Computed example of a mutant assay.
Amino acid sequence: MKDWLDGYDERDWQTTTEGTVRYALLGLGWWSIDVALPAIENSDLGEVTTLVSSSTEKAERLADEHGVAHGISYDEFHDGAATDAYDAVYVGTPNAYHLEYVESAAAMGKAVICEKPMESTVDRAERMVEVAESEAIPLMIAYRMQTDPTVRRAKELVEAGFVGDPVSVYGNNSQPLLEMIPDEDQWRLDPDLSGYGTSVMDLGIYSLNTARFILDRDPVSVQSQMRSDHEAFSEVPDERSGSLLVLEDGVRMVTTASQHAHEDTQLKITGTEGQIDLRPAFHGECKMHLSRGEMTASVAHEGFDSQREMREEFDFFADRLLTDGDIPADGRHGLQDMRIIRAVHQAAESGDVVTL
């Protein structure tokens, strides 16, 4: 156990320490500016050279404020401005705009790291995969939990048999969206921009994808219920959502998500011999609680917040670009999450079990 703890934060995925990937950031909201930008600037293998926003004025102003060389508008990006200044594109716009920027990046031969969920609908996600594959560009979906050391150690423990045979999973992700962003007209509450809904698309995806990653199992069927009561959620069906999924090998998963609740994140995996409980699980400071027989233990890595999670994610992506390495969380991996989320919504609307 001591040797395992000594290497807890090690980058087991790293294959190079040399080289630099230059990024263009698209979509200059608070996440891109306050989290993604400093994460890249503090990374080992990346730098931001270009900011892309709705207007040249805004992009240039933010570029000046943050010491970035180029600031261009979306139209200028589509027209190929500053293409010599960056190697890869980070797409952090609202979901329904992802495809058009990936299409332009692919046409310019640029690698792409695209925020999750990868698009607003399965059809648009399928088109993204097709364009990335036809232009042979690297496409990674930004599942930052997959490079979080706690999640990677949890995966190792499951593979080593710590929990025995996995039996069940419980995942929850909730937050008070309107307290965080006091705007009832924000894009996450607009189905034309967010996609199938808000809570599952934006929060539930963490439980679903992290469980897929740790267990290496996909859902085969889903039952679901959801409702919206608050007037701000009148256009989206899932202010509150709960689902029962059957994963491969008969593993049962219960997942809940809400954009209008107390902040809470958890992912608990129970097996025939033990249990791994990540609590809190998402958005930084992931902590692991272990149980097996009479043994219990808790492990935390200090100072690991969302920005550091993003730093790990960007360095992982850069590592793969610089070495032509495999990208597990590629477009097809992200497309499977989109199909799962669509099935969750279909099951809630129909009241039936939906198979995948």
Rank of each mutant, 00 (worst) to 15 (best):
Q186K: 00
E159R: 15
E184S: 14
D165W: 03
V222G: 00
F162Y: 15
D218L: 13
D185K: 07
G171M: 10
M226H: 12
M201K: 03
P219F: 05
A160S: 13
F213V: 05
L189A: 05
G164D: 11
D202E: 08
D183C: 02
G161W: 06
G161T: 09
V158M: 05
D216K: 07
D216G: 15
L215H: 06
Y170P: 10
M226Q: 13
N173W: 07
L208Q: 13
P182Q: 10
R188A: 07
V220P: 02
R153Y: 09
T198K: 00
A160V: 02
S174E: 14
D218S: 13
A154G: 09
I205M: 08
P176D: 11
F162M: 09
S168T: 15
S168C: 08
Q175H: 05
V167A: 13
V200G: 00
Q175L: 13
R212S: 12
D192N: 14
N173Q: 13
A154K: 03
R227S: 15
Q225G: 12
I205S: 08
S199C: 06
P191E: 02
M201R: 01
D165G: 12
V169L: 06
V220H: 03
L193E: 11
I214H: 11
D185Q: 12
N173G: 06
S194I: 01
P219N: 02
V222L: 04
T198S: 15
L193A: 08
P176G: 09
P182T: 06
S194Y: 01
S194G: 00
S174K: 12
F162K: 08
E179C: 01
S174P: 09
F213H: 14
L203E: 05
N172K: 11
F213W: 14
R188L: 07
R153C: 01
M226D: 06
Q223T: 13
L189T: 06
W187D: 02
S221D: 01
M180Y: 11
I181K: 00
V220Y: 02
F213G: 08
R217S: 11
A211M: 03
S194E: 06
P166L: 09
W187C: 01
G195E: 02
V163T: 15
A211C: 02
Q225S: 15
E159Y: 09
D218A: 12
A154V: 13
E179H: 09
W187G: 00
G171E: 00
P219G: 05
G195A: 04
P191T: 07
E159L: 11
L157F: 11
Y206D: 15
G171C: 04
L208K: 01
L215E: 04
V167C: 10
V220A: 00
D202Y: 08
R212F: 09
S221V: 00
T210R: 03
V163C: 14
D192K: 06
S207Y: 01
T210K: 02
K155R: 15
L203F: 07
Q186N: 10
V169M: 05
R217Q: 14
L193D: 08
P182K: 10
R153D: 07
S224I: 01
V163G: 14
R153E: 15
W187Q: 00
L215W: 05
N173H: 15
I214S: 09
S174N: 13
G164C: 12
S199M: 00
Y206M: 10
R217F: 08
V167R: 11
L193Q: 11
K155Y: 03
